[in-house]
């Protein structure tokens, strides 16, 4: 095509790009985009995608140990969904990676070497069935808060993937609630089990949203993602939304908040809470969480064990 558009300078392209962002016109994979937008999306979406895949592993541990056939079927469906979400998101990331000549295989290697991180909540142990319920209820609840914030993301393919994902997350959240409510209405021992799970997961749940200010950890992508309308709310706004939605529900089930000082300040309209221990996030970023290496090893082993399948299928099309 020879026309004026080809002659557009980088500056003009940037101007046109920002105009689309401001007007709410979606950016598509083949459209021109600034490098910063592309790299921000790649980092965000590849981490999201790998977290779905790694996030299936803590729950998968409870498939053989689920207390009934019904519960086993439910948690298996959820594990399958998480892998499906990983497939969708890796596709979105791969199309963005094209100019760099990188593929899914490269992302997998980045995961193995520790260059590509996965969410803090998936590095922890799942000690009891209460943990399996709590992951569905509150970890998925936290993920729903961050993901629904991006349903109108400026990048079309990611927004469309999130629409599919969030629709299934509704089932995940209810699946988690069903486990938690059954335990909450059960014996003292069962109630103690979910209180113990809540106590152990609380720090990770707060850390999940990221620090309020970039000074906490030295880096933060929240300003860039808001500038390009990939997301709308800050880390702190999302954490506050999570409290507003879930604290009343936690209390209504007779559970206690692990943070005894926590309260809602009516005047300022904010939840006041104890700052979580951010060292957890630093440790998992180095893959030094309780189950980081075990889960990465499981992924490595299955990737290597299944290499022959990829080789065999490749042979038929060459």
């Amino acid at each position: 095509m020879t026309n004026l558009a080809l002659a557009a300078t980088e500056e003009e392209k940037m101007e046109r790009f920002m105009e689309k962002i401001e007007k709410g016109i979606k950016i598509e994979a083949d459209d021109w985009m600034p490098e910063e937008y592309r790299t921000t999306l790649i980092k965000l979406i590849s981490m999201h995608g790998m977290s779905e895949i790694m996030g299936a592993l803590p729950e998968k541990e409870w498939v053989p140990k689920a207390p009934s056939l019904h519960r086993k079927l439910g948690i298996m469906a959820k594990v399958q969904d998480e892998m499906g979400h990983g497939q969708l998101l890796l596709r979105v990331a791969e199309d963005l990676l094209k100019p760099y000549g990188k593929t899914r295989g490269d992302l997998m290697q980045d995961l193995f070497t520790g260059k590509l991180k996965f969410h803090n909540v998936f590095h922890a142990e799942t000690r009891t069935w209460g943990d399996a319920g709590l992951i569905g209820w509150l970890v998925d609840g936290a993920a729903i808060i961050t993901q629904t914030d991006m349903l109108n993301a400026s990048y079309g393919p990611y927004a469309r993937a999130l629409h599919r994902i969030c629709a299934e997350e509704v089932f995940h959240a209810q699946h988690g609630e069903a486990i938690i409510m059954a335990l909450a209405e059960g014996t003292d021992e069962q109630r103690a089990m979910i209180q113990d799970a809540l106590n152990r997961w609380w720090n990770s749940l707060l850390v999940f949203f990221g620090p309020a200010a970039k000074e906490t950890l030295g880096t933060s992508k929240q300003d860039v993602t808001i500038k390009y309308k990939i997301r709308t709310k800050t880390n702190e706004q999302l954490r506050q939304d999570f409290f507003t939605k879930y604290v009343p529900r936690i209390l209504s089930l007779g559970l206690e908040l692990p943070d005894k000082t926590m309260h809602y300040n009516e005047e300022k309209e904010v939840w006041v809470y104890q700052e979580p221990d951010w060292s957890e996030l630093k440790a998992v970023a180095r893959n030094e969480g309780a189950r980081s290496q075990a889960r990465l090893n499981l992924r490595r082993t299955s990737y290597q064990t299944n290499a022959w399948v990829r080789d065999a299928l490749a042979a038929t099309i060459s």
Partner: peptide, 23 residues
């Protein structure tokens, strides 16, 4: 619906059902 990766069209058909038509 969406896109997927597969080594051939038969696998693509299976993956399409697994990835997008679970419900």
């Amino acid at each position: 619906q969406f896109s997927l990766l597969a080594p051939n069209e038969d696998m693509a058909m299976i993956m399409a059902q697994e990835n997008f038509m679970r419900r």
